[in-house]
Write a protein that binds this DNA or RNA. Structure first.
Length: 551
DNA sequence: GCCGTTTTCGGCCCGACTGTTTTCAGTCG
């Protein structure tokens, strides 16, 4: 509705709707359960009645009316860079353009350039925008682009001309997918840095090359912007470019409340600049403590900024696969790497028999695996090494909620992870019941990747997370935050819910080769985005306490 | 359409860039 209202120039009405849309997306409670919708920030009498109408009938008459007046695939059209709702409206009125296909056709036939307010450039940009959309979804997995971005950062920070450097944007906020990458630097010799930047070996295309901003595309397909900012504005620029957009709106509003102005150049009282050099100073100037980028997603509804978990708090990884089920490395090699990472323990959790495609282990193989683990642990003991390999598995929760390994074997293991790997499309009720039944199994300690989503591939399966939390709390079952870049499951909002419900979590990498043990940082970021503190995550605990948290 | 430790009316984040304009609207982050 916000989009359609913006089209009609109802700009403040549109903003009111847009704000509510954003609030609803990050709402912790489900709207169905709320007694008083007007308690939701931004929701007044009118919008409340529309939400009620939607909950009751599945439609909003006013929205249907708006769509009928301008029957176009608006979302599709405004996804094209440079296209907004105003332009979409003009194109519909003048050329009857309803969707992306119409838009592309009209642009190719040079019909758009002739319109008043449009031109040759706009038409060309539309075609390029459409081509970009077709090439990629427009967003990239954080985990996929991180290595190459870090490489670029390393090379830049090694230059003596670079005084300060940081990433910004969603990359710095550690969002699971990133649209483009922003890097900010302070430098007295921007020309030289920019020239170096645009000629890096990973660069496949240069969009712009200037002294304050250069843009390139790197071989992974993602665009990287490098900006040079003045040293005295570095903090405010970093704050501004890190976002999120919503966070910036909130911080600026706070500034206004204190008769200050906040922008990318600094914090100002009248014409006088009172802060800007560091982010800490900027937040302090508007009366806030520094906020970790992972918490800058939307509302600031914490009284005190939580002391969120850090990578160094992690004492071990409980989700890794060995050569036994087709992984790359032997248990001994995995243990060695884990030790090198400073861990106190590593849990081996190979797939079990149902999962043929992953060479799942049968009960006989599992018991044989235990002997190997015992041998390794004994060796560590003799060498007086304080390190332990734990014997676990990643068992399958079958369609009826049972586990594909017998309790007789499960109960001997140090811990058991269970996950849904099949029949993902069963209905909500059945899926919820299926997972609940698994949690009620006295041998199941951890639920792996609880929602089943694969980013950019498939949505989470239908299930009632609130009910899962209830049972997890009751049965003391731990929920996993899977670090695999395409999973990052639990997602941030569910981590917040779990924390609130007092349900413990574990961060696991799901590594199939030792290099993937380093994916832990992505799981930790995800936990941070969900406000998780050290105490919420069991693999921050030393071995003795960890073992107590298993059933 | 929503909101109020100055307000029930008069505001609503801010600046840059682009392409089209000749003073600005639309889009973006």
């Amino acid at each position: 509705m916000a989009n359609y209202l913006e089209m009609e120039d109802s700009s403040f009405r549109s903003k009111a709707y847009r704000k509510v849309a954003e609030v609803l997306e990050t709402l912790q409670e489900s709207v169905e359960d709320m007694k008083d919708l007007e308690k939701i920030p931004g929701v007044g009498k009118h919008i409340a009645s529309k939400i009620e109408e939607y909950l009751k009938t599945g439609f909003i008459r006013d929205y249907e009316k708006l769509k009928k007046e301008t029957p176009i695939k608006l979302e599709e059209i405004i996804a094209v860079e440079g296209m907004g709702v105003k332009k979409a409206k003009v194109l519909y009125d003048k050329l009857k353009i309803k969707n992306l296909k119409d838009l592309e056709k009209a642009a190719k036939k040079n019909k758009i350039a002739k319109l008043e307010g449009f031109g040759e450039k706009t038409e060309k940009n539309i075609l390029e925008g459409i081509a970009f959309l077709e090439r990629s979804s427009g967003r990239f997995l954080l985990g996929k682009i991180t290595p190459v971005v870090e490489d670029i950062l390393d090379k830049l920070s090694n230059l003596k001309e670079v005084e300060k450097i940081s990433t910004a944007g969603s990359f710095r906020r550690r969002k699971e997918t990133v649209g483009d990458v922003d890097i900010l630097i302070v430098s007295k010799k921007p020309e030289e840095v920019m020239t170096f930047f645009v000629s890096l070996p990973d660069v496949v295309k240069v969009w712009g090359h200037g002294t304050t901003k250069s843009s390139v595309r790197i071989k992974e397909g993602v665009d990287v912007d490098l900006r040079v900012v003045p040293a005295k504005s570095y903090g405010s620029a970093l704050q501004y470019f890190t976002g999120s957009k919503e966070h910036n709106i909130i911080t600026r509003r706070i500034a206004i409340g204190k008769e200050l102005k906040l922008n990318e150049y600094g914090v100002f009282r009248g014409a006088k600049m009172i802060a800007g050099k560091t982010e800490k100073e900027v937040y302090r100037a508007i009366g806030l403590d520094w906020i970790p980028p992972e918490l800058r997603e939307s509302e600031l509804d914490f009284k005190k900024i939580p002391k969120i978990i850090e990578l160094k708090d992690i004492k071990g990884d409980l989700h890794c696969h060995s050569k036994w089920n087709g992984g790359n490395d032997s248990i001994a090699v995995i243990a060695k790497k884990a030790m090198k990472m400073g861990y106190e323990y590593i849990g081996i959790s190979d797939h079990t028999q149902f999962l043929k495609i992953e060479h799942g282990l049968n009960e006989k193989q599992l018991l044989k695996q235990k002997k190997e683990i015992d041998k390794i642990n004994l060796k560590f003991k003799i060498e007086n090494l304080k390190f332990r390999v734990l014997w676990g598995c990643e068992a399958n929760i079958l369609t009826d909620g049972s586990i594909d390994v017998s309790d007789k074997v499960l109960e001997q293991m140090d811990y058991v992870i269970a996950g849904v790997h099949s029949a993902l499309k069963i209905d909500k009720e059945k899926m919820t019941q299926r997972i609940i039944m698994a949690m009620e199994n006295p041998n199941v300690d951890i639920i792996a990747h609880p929602s089943g989503r694969i980013l950019q591939q498939r949505d989470e399966y239908q299930f009632d997370f609130d009910k899962i939390l209830e049972t997890a709390k009751k049965t003391e079952t731990i929920l996993e935050i899977n670090s695999s870049p395409a999973r990052l499951d639990l997602k941030d909002s569910n981590i917040r819910k779990a924390k609130k419900a007092g349900v413990k979590m574990v961060i696991g990498t799901d590594a199939h080769q030792i290099s993937q043990l380093d994916l832990m940082n992505f799981g930790v970021s995800q936990a941070r985005r969900g406000w998780a503190e050290k105490e919420d995550i069991i693999n921050t605990q030393p071995l003795s306490i960890l073992l107590q948290s298993f059933k």
